[in-house]
Amino acid sequence: MRDLRIFIISVLSLLGATTLGAQNLTDLLIGEVLVENTNGLTDGYGQRNGWIELFNTSSGTVKFGGCYLSDDESNLRKYHIPTSDMAAKLGPRQSIVFYASGNASQGTFYTNFKLRNGSTIFLVSNDGRTIIDKVEIPSDLPADQSVVRIPFGIKGMDFETKVNPNPTPGSYNGDVDAKTKSQIMKEQDPHGWVLTFIAVMVVFLALMILAFIFGWIGNANKREKKSAPKAKKVHKQGNMSPEVAAAISMALSMELGDEVYAAIALALDDYLAGGVHDVESMIITIKPSAGSQWADKTQNFRQLPR
């Protein structure tokens, strides 16, 4: 049993450490690339270089330290993004710009290669082999225009590649003026009848299916019970007063039916002012008075796990 626990914990730890990390990196993509920058974004040194924008498509933060950027398929480990830089991470649906200055000593976000038309830019996982994403730059890409990946579709998780005359480094590439769902509903369903109709139908449908399934399971259970031989009744004796024993035996009497359970429960609840604790169905549990917890020796026992 102990070995099984250790095994389960080990497997979960391994899953947490490896699988999830790898899954996060695959949420990255190259959002936008600009090769010839004559009139646009300047870097921290006041220079205008080509740039590569990375975008996090997921709803969680992704750390990309340790990944690689390259413009050469035969050398995918061309620029190594420093693992130690705490800034090497992207929040949900955020983007970040790498300047292709050709001089990596300028900082984490400066690559050791410059961009050129007709090349392909690779974003490579921290194993140095797995290509997470790549973008082909057209050989005739004009100056100050970028290759951009624009999200589309209901989920905004599909991307189409376009040439963009108005680059947006470090900004969301989709429609920044996109309306919220609430605004869309306000236009399409100003009085709310459509949503109400759909929602009521869905609530009824969900609960009807549930009712149907459990009706069916209940019937199957009844049939099973009928066909099974009747088990001999076993009566347990415990420490109880004659009055309680009489009440319970009355409740268990087949002649009186199950309603007596409810009646006794209510009567006890009324009498004991909430002292009746009914956890399991059809079982009445009466908690003994614990007295002062300081004086109760059982409170001092260590609750060992089974």
Binding site: G192, L195, V200, F204, L207, L210, A211, F212, D278
Partner: peptide
């Protein structure tokens, strides 16, 4: 304890009907 519901699953629909309060207030 869901046994009251499991024993009479048809009563689920009453729970659904009462949710009209939500959508009435929404309107």
């Amino acid at each position: 304890d869901f046994s009251a519901l499991i024993s009479q699953p048809r009563l689920l629909l009453i729970g659904a009907a009462a949710q009209m309060g939500i959508f009435g207030a929404y309107l």
